[in-house]
Design a protein around this nucleic acid. Sequence first.
DNA 1: CAAGATTGATGGCTCAATCTTC
DNA 2: GAAGATTGAGCCATCAATCTTG
Lengths: 167, 167
Amino acid sequence: MTSPQWLTDDEQHAWRSFLLVHARLSSRMNRDLQRSAGLSLADYDVMVNLADAPEGKLRAFELGDALQWEQSRLSHHLARMHRRDLVRREHCPDDGRGAFVVLTDTGRERLVAAAPAHVASVRQLVFDGLDEGSLRALTTLCDDVLARLEDDAAERDVAPLATTART
Amino acid sequence: MTSPQWLTDDEQHAWRSFLLVHARLSSRMNRDLQRSAGLSLADYDVMVNLADAPEGKLRAFELGDALQWEQSRLSHHLARMHRRDLVRREHCPDDGRGAFVVLTDTGRERLVAAAPAHVASVRQLVFDGLDEGSLRALTTLCDDVLARLEDDAAERDVAPLATTART
DNA sequence: CAAGATTGATGGCTCAATCTTC
DNA sequence: GAAGATTGAGCCATCAATCTTG
């Protein structure tokens, strides 16, 4: 190995499997969705969030929060989806800065057509082979790592200030 | 919900957490590596594989197999890394079609400089908070899904032939 | 023809800069 | 000045087409 204190063999195996399973799953689902419905996974996620919204529309920043996307990424993506007539922008009367994002009729049709096969595929590849315990283990594990990421990010933001405060 | 037979709440939670933890981890590590060493995760993986190879060089297709990358992706990426003087292409005497990929001295230095912080970060964020059982559970789970992906892909390749053979 | 590899086009992501409205 | 959002540049991934050698 190249690095000083690398991972144990078991840890390395786990890490590689984790990265590989994500790469494989997302590339497989992207390809399937693309072929069957002409949508990317990202398109699909945007549309599901809009379809689930009360009026079928959301403020851009709400959509961004739900997807956990940066503003810029969302804006670029919506521009591309707009060109394909999947979503529409609507003026927001309450806030001159803001904009609503709305699913077009075409968009809704495409989503409805795409959903069953996609859900079936997630079911079959991931969850059908998972017992109750594994499901809980996976959730706990992911949420723990997410919590550690949050803590770490928070620490970075506060540390410089705290240091100056202490000196 | 939009779709006919969606996932249970627990499954949905697990699925979202899984996707989110990957997105967060890889974006975090990409940013850290980029800032501290001017490397992407992809660069890093390429270089680790080369550094671990017997002579510090690999045939392009061997590298592609190790990384599980498409030919085209690898070729584009190596072209970009070549421009930054991280890798070099070497003629292969045995096979006129083929090419060796070699880590440059610069490349090796950059890798050695980047590795400790990166490994520490994976350790701290992922594995330090993981007990033996969770580690095994994660590995098993990922490998199971990977096996299902393989089976499914194999089935698709064979099915059309089998169908024609049966008719 | 198959295997190894490259190329060009297109869509997608990130970063920094910008614009408008609060 | 901060929040909501957009833009342009540059890097990355995928697909289809291509080229060369076995």
